[in-house]
Design a protein around this nucleic acid. Structure first.
Length: 479
RNA sequence: CGGGGCGUGGCUCAGCCUGGUAGAGCAUUCGCUUUGGGAGCGAAGGGUCGCAAGUUCAAAUCUUGCCGCCCCGACCA
């Protein structure tokens, strides 16, 4: 049961987040440090995310498969940048069945290596290409500092792995999946993300190019919400993924990988949540509508419940995810607050007064208090619910976009830059290198989040080098 | 992994300084009255005081080690 008060976001954004995750029953701490239990309400949200993404993966020709959890340690070592990037955070199994293993096994931190091994066996000819496979699984990275959903030792995600005959095809795939992520984030999660290219220093270990979608949280910090990598021929060469091409020549494949994790739940919380708690986008919410019946005695209860069950059946039949709150002994006021904390987009209040008029009260989560309440006839309830859910979905995106745009600052001086990253994103002309990024990071804690795909098509003066450049970059402090 | 803070019924915490055998509020269960924005009264159940050593006649309290959580750094999706 929920406690009366959550810290406000302005008071302590971190504490607001930590308490909300627990109280909304999205997740809980596990007995092992840094691990997370995803509770049914959180998992239902993840299932809706999975369904929305999986639909898009299938529509672009991908198939799901399952690759093993354990990977020979030597596999990680075959790709130089990959092992350098991942070895500090590997969990290693050295004993099996009470015996020391001949070769240690790592718990997958990501699956490029085992999948590369399989692809080398499966791919012989250009006719075998492209290979387009995705898997839903969890991976383990031994992180030092963890936070529920944002960074845990084990996290749930999907990882897509594809192999192609040419660089151009691989690049097109990489960009296509970035577009899929962008579309998912905007359409389903109402997250106005910025798709862009990562700088060399932020690139995935083993990739030639890394793209990401970056989102702005409610405190102005950035969160990488999904990534898509063009791996070039790096893994193909490390795992000998070759094919015989039309021209009779043996060539290395071009591979990609792309992933999106339960971290996106953290983004949804921190972008849409308010001081009352979660605000879930209708398209992903486990419950889109909660019905709170109101009554004073058994006679009223019977009367109200009869009406409520009918209304619920109608809504469910039209495809709306409805929760009926039948808990006894709790006041309506308590239930209102409880479901608001859990982020249900729309609430139906129905009591004796409504029964008499054959109406209900509809309350929108995105508009607090009386302002968000309307009175609706039973006959038009289905249409009103559908329309209002759509409206909430759109309103969340509009609000988040306005917030983001108001907190992206175009800056031309380093002083303005420092001020900008205190509260939001800094957008700058950029011709710098990894050393300058490092310097900026040390001095301001801000990192180059991405070079947005959408560029102004003009030239400007680089913030640090003073050189003319056609490129703008986004810097921010990040989770 | 470095610096700081904190671990006492499910939750928030008091008690620790000055050792003497564990408390409050909320939550839970039961009963009655309540129920349109976080209900009231009454009763009941629930704690090897994070774990392990040590000091002591006696440890929640003192000492040491370990574990975990939170915050700040470095690392990262």
């Amino acid at each position: 049961m929920s406690e009366p008060k959550l810290p406000t976001r302005a008071e302590d954004f971190n504490e607001w987040y930590n308490q909300l995750v627990l109280r909304a029953e999205l997740a809980d701490y596990a007995p092992v440090r840094g691990c997370m239990i995803v509770r049914p309400y959180g998992w239902a949200l993840w299932e809706n995310i999975q369904a929305a993404l999986d639909r898009r993966f299938k529509a672009t020709g991908h198939l799901n498969a399952a690759f093993p959890l354990l990977i020979p340690k030597s596999f990680l070592e075959r790709e130089a940048a990959h092992v350098e990037g991942f070895s500090p955070e590997l969990a290693v199994v050295t004993i099996g069945g009470n015996k020391e293993l001949e070769e240690p096994l790592v718990v997958r931190p990501t699956s490029e290596t085992v999948i590369g091994h399989a692809y080398a066996k499966w791919i012989q000819s250009y006719r075998d290409l492209p290979v387009l496979i995705n898997q839903w699984c969890s991976v383990v990275r031994w992180e030092l500092r963890t936070k529920l959903f944002l960074r845990t030792l084990e996290f749930f995600w999907q990882e897509g792995h594809t192999a192609h005959a040419t660089f151009e095809e691989a690049e097109a795939e990489t960009r296509q999946m970035l577009d899929v992520y962008t579309d998912f984030a905007v359409t389903e999660a109402a997250l106005p993300v910025i798709p862009g290219l990562k700088s060399e220093s932020e690139r995935f270990a083993g990739a030639d190019r890394t793209y990401s979608i970056e989102a702005m949280m409610g405190d102005g910090k950035a969160l990488q919400a999904g990534t898509s990598h063009n791996l070039g021929q790096n893994f193909a060469k490390a795992f000998d993924i070759q094919f015989l091409d039309r021209d009779g020549e043996r060539k290395f494949c071009w591979t990609t990988s792309w992933g999106l994790s339960t971290r996106i739940i953290g983004a949804i919380i921190m972008v849409h949540g308010d001081d009352q708690g979660l605000v879930l986008p209708p398209r992903l919410a486990p419950f889109q509508v909660v019905i709170v019946p109101i009554y004073k005695n058994d006679a009223e209860r019977a009367q109200v419940m009869e009406a409520v069950v009918g209304l619920q059946r109608g809504l469910t039949a039209s495809g709306v995810r409805v929760k009926l709150d039948t808990r006894d002994g709790l006041t309506p006021g308590f239930k209102f607050n409880d479901w608001e904390m859990r982020g249900v987009p729309l609430r139906i209040e129905i009591g004796p007064k409504d029964i008499a008029k054959r109406t209900v009260v509809l309350a929108r989560r995105d508009r607090p208090g009386k302002e968000g309440k309307t009175c609706v006839d039973w006959d038009s309830l289905g249409a009103a619910v559908a329309a209002t859910l759509d409206d909430i979905q759109a309103a969340l995106l509009t609000r988040a976009t306005a917030f983001r745009d108001a907190n992206i600052h175009d800056v031309a001086t380093y002083d303005d830059f420092k001020a900008a990253v205190e509260t939001g994103f800094a957008r700058v002309w950029w011709a710098g290198d990894a050393a300058l990024e490092q310097q900026i990071k040390e001095e301001t804690k801000a990192t180059l989040r991405c070079i947005p795909l959408a560029q102004p098509g003009e030239t400007g003066t680089c913030l640090m080098t003073g050189r003319p450049t056609p490129t703008q970059a986004i810097f921010a402090r990040a989770y």
